[in-house]
Design a protein around this nucleic acid. Structure first.
Lengths: 181, 181
DNA sequence: CTGCCCATGTAAATGGTTACATGATTGA
DNA sequence: TCAATCATGTAACCATTTACATGGGCAG
């Protein structure tokens, strides 16, 4: 499980609530790791039981109380151990590719429509990657090396999606050769 | 759920058993969709109940009996409907990138070791993509257009992993600038 | 005689999504 | 007054992995 480890990393950067974590995942990591709020709250509970984090309730007047979590020593060790463990290739679950495998029963127009819709979503994602917000977040890095690593993560995403766009274009162009009569 | 749909596509290509399906997933689709045998058997049972497939028991002498599944009309419809539905971007769950996000607490050598191990796995995967077996499978395509689509799927995988290798190389080189004293 | 291929399953656990639920404050 | 933000949670379900389980045939 790496949701746990992604959370530990964020909390080490800065103690925060489950709500804050959700925003962190949505704004910076969403693109290579995601989590719903229910999953985050439940995982935090479990991590608390396992003594990986501590909880402090902060009473607020104008807002609901919040629970601030902090990484414990055991949590730091858990994170460090995981960080030193080589990971397998991520399992690809690429629905569009499954569709393409069996798409010969669709018309050219139908296939192209699938590809175009997908391309539009890829472009949206790319816009997010290129947004100012992403650059701002690099400011929070705690060292030049950390900033470099964060920039590399961003660039990985950008390259991934740009490559995907090129591929989509090639498929669309290639399909033209199979004009329907 | 697209395991169901990937299965329907395979069965439409050729009626087969759960065991055969497992091999199909492992040899051709593993790289963009995967499933364990337990998942396949259970899904087939469910699909049978839902009348998406029929089951025929083939008695064998030298081997255990096998259950051959065929797509029903309802199954064809289910597949066709799904094929015409645009898909969202796949959720990326890239553990190595999560590690990189928090890797500043590792030494350069430790980070590079993570990256190199990962790169070795990417190269293995690329070898699979470039293997003869992959080219042979293109023969089973039922039309030129289908063969084109299958080739594009393969090329998507190849491009993905080649890009990943380039990125890994850039990170490794970039890290050198942060030499440890 | 060892280990792989054939062929099927079940059970338990983990991970993840979706829906249901509440309720005050703030800005348009 | 409508919608969004803040802030938390539970319950049900679905998807996926891992482990447990069986047993004959065949090749080295």
């Amino acid at each position: 499980m790496s949701l746990k480890h992604a959370i530990l990393g964020f909390l080490k950067l800065m103690p925060m609530s489950g709500y804050d974590l959700k925003h962190m995942f949505d704004s910076s990591v969403q693109y290579y790791w995601s989590a719903t709020h229910s999953q985050i709250y439940q995982t935090l509970e479990k991590m608390l039981k396992d003594n990986l984090v501590t909880q402090e309730i902060v009473h607020q007047v104008e807002h609901p109380n919040k629970k601030i979590y902090r990484v414990t020593e055991a949590g730091e060790k858990e994170l460090h151990d995981w960080l030193s463990t080589p990971q397998d290739l991520p399992v690809m679950r690429h629905k569009l590719l499954v569709q393409m495998a069996w798409a010969d029963e669709l018309t050219n127009d139908e296939i192209i429509s699938l590809l175009e819709t997908y391309a539009a979503r890829v472009r949206e994602r790319l816009d997010l990657y290129h947004s100012e917000e992403q650059k701002t977040q690099l400011e929070y890095a705690r060292s030049d090396r950390e900033r470099f690593l964060w920039r590399m993560i961003l660039e990985n995403g950008i390259a991934t999606y740009e490559r995907e766009l090129e591929w989509l274009q090639r498929v669309i162009e290639g399909l033209a050769e199979f004009a329907e009569e």
